Simulated assay, not measured.
Amino acid sequence: MLLAEDLLLLLTDDETGKLAASGTEVDVALGGALLVELALKGRVDVAGANDRVREGRLVVRNPDPTGDGELDEALTLVVEREGKKPQSVVTRLGKRARVRLYQRLVERGVLRVEADRILGIFPTHRWPSNDAAHESSVRTALLTALREGAAAEARTGALISLLHALNAVHKTVAPDSLGLSETELEASAKRIAEGDWAAKAVRQAIDSINAAVIAATSSAVIVGGGGGSS
């Protein structure tokens, strides 16, 4: 399961099938999750002082296919836009990714799709849970990390970092389930987002990507935001 799919599951209410954050914000975060996964796999990095592209821009370390169609499509886009700022690539990666990821989760039996209409006119979809086993295992790792204030492995650290960038940790985890206040929960997420849970190269890439997610999300909200579940 992709990191972006785990993020989308956490941000989608199991009962209503609706998002816990605005569609615009989620789309940006999903683009960030795809880029983070490419970084974790050693395919993409943020350029250093002596790289072939300008420092701080995206550089491709390994263009070989990952074996996952969605991730390979993301890698192709990054290859085409090598040398660009992470923010611009995150935004591009997030466009239309949400519905494709939802459809993958439906095909795997994790979610089901329910068609509806807003005001009886405008078509929309909801994506309630069909099999919560995978999400439950992801959530268990998330809760353990947040309770301890540290991530045991990079994937959980990346997921919490993305949720923190969205300011959505409290929307996916009930603070009282951990015996924490909302302030304490956010503080724990912040420690993890800034923590030393990844190798140096991956850490640098994820720091830049998370900054891009925050910046792109802020820009989208200022322009007009977005919403909806499909």
Rank of each mutant, 00 (worst) to 15 (best):
E5I: 03
L8M: 11
L8A: 13
L9D: 13
L10N: 07
T12D: 02
D14A: 15
E15L: 15
G17L: 03
K18V: 13
L19G: 14
A20I: 07
T24P: 09
E25W: 01
V26R: 08
V28Y: 02
A29P: 04
A29W: 00
G31T: 02
G32E: 02
L34P: 13
V36T: 15
E37Q: 04
K41T: 03
G42Q: 10
G42T: 12
V44Q: 00
D45P: 08
D45M: 10
D45H: 09
A47S: 12
G48W: 03
N50G: 13
D51S: 13
V53K: 14
G56M: 06
V59M: 08
R61I: 14
P63S: 00
D64N: 13
L71K: 09
D72R: 02
E73Y: 08
A74P: 06
A74Y: 05
L75V: 11
L75F: 09
T76H: 12
K84H: 14
K85D: 07
K85I: 03
P86K: 02
P86V: 01
P86F: 02
V89A: 05
V90F: 04
L93I: 00
G94H: 02
G94R: 00
R96Y: 13
R98K: 15
L105M: 14
E107T: 09
R108M: 03
L111P: 06
V113L: 01
D116V: 12
I118K: 02
I118L: 07
P123S: 04
T124W: 04
T124Y: 06
H125F: 01
R126C: 12
W127E: 11
P128E: 08
N130H: 15
S137E: 14
V138W: 06
V138C: 06
T140H: 15
A141E: 03
A141L: 06
L142A: 05
L142C: 06
L142K: 02
L143S: 06
T144K: 01
T144L: 02
G149C: 09
G149D: 08
A150E: 01
A150L: 07
E153A: 12
R155L: 09
T156K: 10
L159E: 13
S161Y: 07
L162I: 12
L162G: 11
L163I: 01
L166K: 12
L166G: 14
N167K: 11
H170F: 13
T172Y: 04
T172W: 03
V173R: 04
A174H: 13
A174T: 14
P175I: 10
D176T: 14
S177D: 10
G179L: 08
E182S: 03
L185D: 04
L185R: 00
S188C: 07
I192P: 02
I192L: 02
A193V: 10
A193F: 05
E194I: 03
D196F: 14
A198C: 01
A198L: 00
A199V: 13
V202E: 12
V202W: 06
R203T: 09
Q204R: 11
Q204H: 06
I206H: 10
I206A: 10
S208D: 08
S208C: 07
A211F: 05
A212T: 04
A212I: 01
A215I: 04
A216C: 03
S219G: 08
A220L: 00
I222W: 08
V223L: 15
G224T: 05
G227Q: 03
G228K: 04
S230I: 02
S230W: 05
S230F: 07
